[in-house]
Simulated scan of single mutants.
Amino acid sequence: MLRSVLRLQKVIRSPAVSSVRATARLHAVPSLPYEVSAGVKPLLSPAALNIIYTDHQTGLVNRLNELIAGTPYEDKLFYEVLMDSARSLNETQIFNNASQAWNNDFFLRSLSSTPSPMSDALSKRIAASFGSVEVFKREFTTNALGLFGSGWTWLVEDKDGRLVLLNTYNAGSPHHRRRMQRNDETATEHDFASQAQNPYSGVSKFSAPAKLRANNSYVPILCISMWEHAYLTDYGVTREGRQRYLDNFFKTVDWNVVESRVFRAGGF
């Protein structure tokens, strides 16, 4: 199921193509379901989306191709590269580029300028975990605003089908326990309770607690990029700008896409 979420596609190489050219096309960035030249209104202007998708995403994939050329990773599917490098602490550069590209693609494919509204089924599912959709959006925003530095805020599904929030830093991935790249890996339950009192700490009572992270079994449902390049062009560097970025994010989430990612025992 997780592999089906990944959209970065394998390119078939022709024997007639030179080895240098073939190496550069091990993986390619596929088209998005909308035009980059139009942006994603009201969240991302064309200029901002061009940076995120054309410049940043292409750079990540090209660098990954360079790193895996001539290695056992060269003929693996993209998700296999991500997970196999996550298991090896000696493959940090490969993991960082693969994970960041996966995260970026996942984020962009959640968006639409004409998004589908949230269904009653998904609304009830979110309410079962957070109390209401409004509380979910508030807590998701709190986590994202409290993320100090570059990273991602996620809505994930745990092994029991519960929906919880998760922040990962840099290229951190919810797919593997070793590579979540949290700043609270040694936090206790008491630490989480005290941090939740600070509305800008990035941790709320709905955040995934440390004991759940050990199950190595999160399924990503939704995420937002809190990397500076994602919001700087349109919103600047202030906290107020990031707040507007998050407000507009919820205006462009395609909830049909989000719903298609929910599949565990606690699903529909």
Rank of each mutant, 00 (worst) to 15 (best):
V164D: 01
A265K: 15
F268M: 09
S207C: 09
L89M: 12
F249P: 02
D234K: 07
E74Q: 15
L145D: 01
M226P: 04
A48K: 02
I224D: 00
V135A: 13
A22D: 09
P209T: 02
N50Q: 09
R138D: 14
E189P: 04
A47K: 08
G267K: 11
R3Y: 14
P30T: 06
L8E: 12
I12T: 12
N62W: 05
R87T: 04
A22N: 14
S207K: 04
F192M: 04
C223M: 14
R7L: 08
L43R: 02
E185W: 12
I221L: 13
R182E: 09
T233V: 09
A193R: 13
T142I: 09
E157P: 10
S31V: 08
N96I: 05
E66P: 01
N216K: 07
T92N: 15
T252A: 13
A98Y: 07
V135I: 15
N50D: 09
F192A: 01
Q195Y: 13
S113T: 14
A121W: 08
I52R: 05
R109V: 01
K10M: 08
A265S: 15
K251M: 09
A230L: 07
T142C: 12
P174A: 02
S194K: 12
H229S: 03
Y218L: 15
Y73I: 02
Q181M: 14
T252D: 00
S225Y: 03
D234I: 06
V133T: 12
T238F: 09
P199G: 04
